[in-house]
Amino acid sequence: MSHPAPPSSFAIDTLKISGYLLSPTHPSGWPKARYFINCGFDPSEPNLLAAALLAHPRLPSRISKPPKITPYDVRFIFEGPIESPQGLTGSVRSVWQVLPLESVGRLVTASPF
């Protein structure tokens, strides 16, 4: 059985970064925020983490897991390094969702790996 190809473009809702992945006060996201902040990302500059995550699926050193296909979406999972603006490297799993009739991968979450 062949798997769908990963999307050629990716998008991130900026609130997902500032209100979740870099929010030390988010009820469930604070451990991720602590990780990304310790990697060198700054909550006052969410666009830097967004840029690193947008590059993550395209890195040659990342590993692509088989997509998860449901009647509602297809989810692509990528694992590998992410580099902060300070040159620090962390290992991250990013999950991207493609909805039916769309071709853009939208960030669902990113977490330490």
Results as ranks from 00 to 15, higher is better:
residue 34 R to N: 11
residue 23 S to D: 15
residue 87 G to K: 10
residue 48 L to V: 10
residue 10 F to T: 01
residue 21 L to C: 09
residue 58 R to Y: 12
residue 65 K to P: 08
residue 20 Y to I: 12
residue 50 A to N: 02
residue 90 G to C: 14
residue 53 L to G: 04
residue 99 L to K: 06
residue 34 R to W: 04
residue 15 L to N: 15
residue 90 G to Q: 03
residue 39 C to G: 04
residue 79 E to D: 07
residue 104 V to I: 15
residue 100 P to N: 05
residue 17 I to F: 04
residue 89 T to R: 12
residue 27 P to Q: 15
residue 112 P to R: 10
residue 4 P to I: 06
residue 110 A to R: 09
residue 100 P to G: 06
residue 50 A to H: 01
residue 87 G to T: 07
residue 41 F to W: 03
residue 77 I to A: 03
residue 8 S to T: 10
residue 19 G to P: 03
residue 81 P to H: 02
residue 99 L to C: 05
residue 43 P to K: 06
residue 3 H to R: 15
residue 27 P to I: 12
residue 13 D to H: 11
residue 50 A to S: 12
residue 80 G to H: 00
residue 11 A to N: 07
residue 41 F to E: 01
residue 79 E to Y: 01
residue 52 A to C: 11
residue 83 E to I: 12
residue 27 P to Y: 06
residue 99 L to H: 09
residue 45 E to L: 12
residue 108 V to C: 07
residue 56 H to I: 07
residue 108 V to K: 08
residue 21 L to D: 00
residue 108 V to N: 09
residue 5 A to P: 02
residue 88 L to M: 13
residue 33 A to S: 13
residue 39 C to R: 03
residue 106 R to A: 06
residue 94 S to Q: 08
residue 74 V to S: 08
residue 89 T to M: 10
residue 75 R to N: 10
residue 23 S to R: 06
residue 67 P to T: 06
residue 75 R to A: 08
residue 107 L to K: 10
residue 43 P to Y: 01
residue 25 T to S: 12
residue 47 N to Y: 05
residue 74 V to L: 07
residue 87 G to A: 11
residue 92 V to G: 00
residue 54 L to G: 03
residue 97 Q to G: 02
residue 28 S to P: 03
residue 47 N to V: 13
residue 92 V to E: 00
residue 37 I to L: 06
residue 101 L to P: 01
residue 39 C to W: 00
residue 11 A to E: 06
residue 2 S to K: 15
residue 83 E to N: 13
residue 110 A to K: 08
residue 12 I to K: 00
residue 94 S to Y: 02
residue 39 C to V: 15
residue 43 P to F: 03
residue 69 I to K: 09
residue 4 P to N: 04
residue 84 S to T: 07
residue 91 S to Q: 12
residue 9 S to P: 05
residue 53 L to A: 09
residue 44 S to E: 07
residue 32 K to P: 03
residue 100 P to K: 06
residue 9 S to A: 14
residue 105 G to T: 07
residue 43 P to W: 00
residue 7 P to V: 07
residue 79 E to M: 13
residue 16 K to Q: 13
residue 8 S to G: 08
residue 94 S to N: 08
residue 62 R to Q: 10
residue 48 L to D: 00
residue 18 S to K: 08
residue 46 P to A: 04
residue 112 P to A: 13
residue 30 W to R: 15
residue 46 P to Y: 01
